[in-house]
Amino acid sequence: MVKLGRDIAHLEEMAKEVRKDIVEMTYLAHSGHPGGSLSSVEILVSLYFSELNQSPETVDSPDRDRFVLSKGHITPAFYSVLSHAGYIPHEELKQFRRVNSRLQGHPASTKLKGIEVSTGSLGQGLSVAIGIALAGKIDKRDYRVYCLVGDGEMEEGQIWEAIMFAGNRHLNNLILFLDYNGLQIDGEVAKINDIAPVISKFEAFKWHTFEINGHSFDQIFKAIDEAKRYPDNPTAIIAHTVKGKGISFMENAYEWHGKAPNEEQYKQAMKELNANG
């Protein structure tokens, strides 16, 4: 198990490796979701290489911190991080979306240890995270539950059911990351069915909130540290991100929500990632 602590240089190196994996996995699978995977990289890397009290060796421990991927389509980022963290061999990423693979298009908890629940139908993960948080309270365990939610996903009604309940129950062991990249399949979130203003919405539902740059490790860690200090409420970390982050032609382009690069685009993307830093 690799833990990088808060060594920003190493974490940034890891983020770059994950971005390369995302491009390669979607290219090899001829499908998948690169845009939202690329926007979530720093959040996932922060959790798995620094914050989560969990490793392949402790993946069944009742005291482990939990992570629930509510925006289940970003499996390229999720599996890549899991591979670098030692949950699966890196070589296995080539099996992504292939028949007989553990690496399903969307996370399948029955196929791979480390996935708490199957997701892929948007809006469901936060409720599951609440159930895990409640179990921690019943059993008086100190673990935390982290949940990654997409911004388009915030349009789902179930998300608001869950936000209301978690706030009312003062679930201080629950930390939500909102990957606020501003784009959903059909275009701009703001134009299709705007979720703004999210800060005041969360606060109205009795959550503690932070607004950060979701690509800054420094800001992510500061927000997590602050969240842990609040004894009374769940925390929402509103992470402003760039969909397709790191690859020029994918950045802020909603078309790259669920499209694989062709060979030329793959080469261009890898060239950009290798050139940067």
């Binding site: 009742p62 629930v68 908890s109 708490e116 629940v117 809006g123 469901q124 993960g125 936060l126 409720s127 599951v128 995270a129 609440i130 159930g131 895990i132 948080a133 409640l134 179990a135 921690g136 059993d139 009604g157 179930q158 059911e161 869950a162 309940f165």
Partner: peptide, 14 residues
């Protein structure tokens, strides 16, 4: 909907 998700979360903790 939330109830079913919460049930799944509790179940995943045994």
């Amino acid at each position: 909907a939330n109830m079913i998700g919460i049930a799944a979360g509790l179940a995943s903790c045994g």
